[in-house]
Design a protein around this nucleic acid. Structure first.
Lengths: 179, 179
DNA sequence: GGGCGCATGTAATGAGTTACATGATTGA
DNA sequence: TCAATCATGTAACTCATTACATGCGCCC
């Protein structure tokens, strides 16, 4: 829970930043690990501020738009550590929405199901390729770790999907879960 | 998206049911595939009803509390098929909240990180064991498929975590992503 | 009489999304 | 002059969660 706050706070632990900068950094560098959107980032910053975990200060360079620069407070550091520990210790629930469809596979024609699952497989392969071609990271050592993790899970997913498509394509599966 | 509606509609495709029964079925038989809660199930039924995808009829057996039994309408069947096709074709985003913590691994003491990740590993192993001991299913063929899928992903997760813990435990990792 | 099972929900809360709103500067 | 970049957000909406509310019947 509260991965949003962990993310924002973690980024601020390295250096103070403003909302726009944070959002840009996430979009450019962390798109493979999170998909936090702009308004969510702004709202999270505001929330952390209300709770006293970060402090704001308004800055202005030349006649650029003014920036609200956020910095972690001591209580914010403690909170960050707490969130980090909880997050590291917790195993994600791996219940995927895609499994709901699988449950009702027999409601679709086998021919249709095959085509649709092949689409799913294609997407998965594309994502995996993208993940594996990701450059090693300038930011923190841990990002590579997260990407490695993600890639490994995607590979497992691809293998499983490929196996499923193969099984579905065969006329009469002799053993294993029947379809 | 809208896995909730797919789930409820899918259950109703097999036979008409009332809210209480649906919730119970989910808790008892589908806990490994979904974690939909009671109020969500009731609300989803109501929404499907408003949209004309299911029809209600009130039933009463003896002097039990009256039941609102829901049945899929023709337009509901079409909608179900649409949802099913979309769901089968779509690959789930595999961005896990647990990766956020990994990104900031270097903010924790190695000793702490190790202990915490071992906790994560333990949980994962427990879940995997539970998944593998799940009995084969009375309801639909697809449920087994979903469970098989889930178990496979959990196994990949366990292997990766075990590897990570091993790497973290070693004093100076010679290659691969450094920690 | 007390608690569990059956059966319905509501209310409060919170988190996240999309689309929209605003306005200045900079570079082609 | 037009588009992109910088920088802030708000509003409306959806979805889900937790905790609470209600009431009857059945069994011990």
């Amino acid at each position: 829970m509260n991965e949003g706050e962990l993310l924002i706070l973690g980024l601020l632990m390295t250096e103070s930043r403003h909302g726009y900068g944070i959002n840009e950094f996430i979009e450019r560098n962390l798109s493979r690990v999170t998909d936090m959107k702009k308004p969510t980032a702004y709202a999270t910053l505001e929330r952390l501020c209300r709770q006293g975990y970060v402090r704001v200060r308004t800055e202005q360079e030349g006649n650029r738009p003014p920036r609200k620069v956020y910095a972690v407070t001591p209580s914010g550091e403690a909170y960050f550590e707490e969130l980090l520990h909880t997050n590291l210790a917790q195993a994600d629930r791996l219940t995927l929405g895609g499994d709901i469809g699988l449950m009702f596979l027999d409601h679709a024609l086998r021919h249709d199901a095959l085509a649709l699952l092949r689409q799913r497989l294609d997407t998965t392969e594309a994502r995996l390729a993208e993940m594996e071609h990701a450059p090693r990271h300038r930011f923190g050592l841990g990002v590579d770790l997260a990407i490695e993790h993600h890639a490994l899970l995607l590979a497992a997913e691809r293998d499983w999907l490929a196996g499923l498509v193969r099984r579905l394509g065969e006329p009469a599966p002799p053993e294993g879960p029947q379809i």
